[in-house]
Amino acid sequence: MWSLLRYFYRHHVLILFILLEVAALFFLFSRNNFQRAVFLNSANHISGNIYARYNSVVNYFRLTSVNKELADENARLRQALYATAGDSIPADSSLIPEILVAGNYDFVAARVINNSVNRQYNYLTLNKGARHGVRPDMGVATVDGVVGVVLNVSDSYSTVISLLNQRWNVPARLSRNSYFGPLSWDGKDYRYALLNDIPFHVELQEGDTIVTSGYSSIFPEGLMLGVIDSFSKEGGDNFYYIRVKLSVDFKALTYVEIIRNKQAGEIETLEKLSGDDAGLD
């Protein structure tokens, strides 16, 4: 008994190290459930507050480019308004996808208070939270295109899984011929992502536009993702290797919009029904 205790005492540092390491690895690998439940994320009160304060200082230095962005957006919206004022909505307008006009979606404007592009799993923190009607699994976009999806929400902040995160991919399609596949990030360059599962018989061109497919209730159909930068046939594979130049500049994100699908609940309930059905047989 004594020798056992002495053994533990002699190796107490090693034992403590192993215990703490196991705890840390548990946090790391059970993150999906855990992170939602516990406040171990930057949406919590203290870190959200620090980021918001820090950001209100740093933002002054970015005002010029933000102003320019807003002016550009204004110009585009006005143009779209004039285009629609005459007659009905242009069928190929990528600026205002039809579904937006139908009023299924509304938007919450938010400011990005923390952002990264240099990890393998990048996240953003926004200054809007449950108080402003933000819920997990809502889409986040700018005028340029898709940014990510809301992961956690606290009272006045929320964290977002960036498109630049290998744990998430966006259902995408080619806007020219509607072939679809997931758009994912390979963790290398924040300006490029990969479009997967496009078979060899599809005709591609550099510069083809990639948009959201609308196969999930998170994003409306036809939201801009990027354009094809290059594509090749890799040996031993049945699908193209397609590099997509992302339309959003993730390094210069300041203001984003959180997309709220008014019918998300209805769609999910419906899909759950068919899910239950599949489980029966």
Partner: peptide
């Protein structure tokens, strides 16, 4: 907590 990477830097 600040980097949204639970457990990574701890480990």
């Amino acid at each position: 907590i600040f980097s949204d990477t639970p457990g990574l830097h701890t480990a």
